[in-house]
Amino acid sequence: MSKTQKPMDLLNNAREKTVLIRLRGNRRMRGTLKAYDVHLNLILENAEEIGEEGLIPLGDIILRGDNVIMVSPVI
């Protein structure tokens, strides 16, 4: 690897993979990352909100970037 990988490269490597996301307002979600932009707007496929009482299916969503705190690709 010639160049240092930047934080946005982590998201690029996570495309088509399942990601776990922590959002403002004490919310957690997961889904397949289809696309993203510089604002961290995310397109998630088969998204699910991880609630106190289990998973709430949401289908495909466009998540507004300013809510994103943390994104972690699920291994």
Partner: peptide, 9 residues
Amino acid sequence: YGDIFVRGN
């Protein structure tokens, strides 16, 4: 977590 991305704001 293995890897995490934290949004700077």
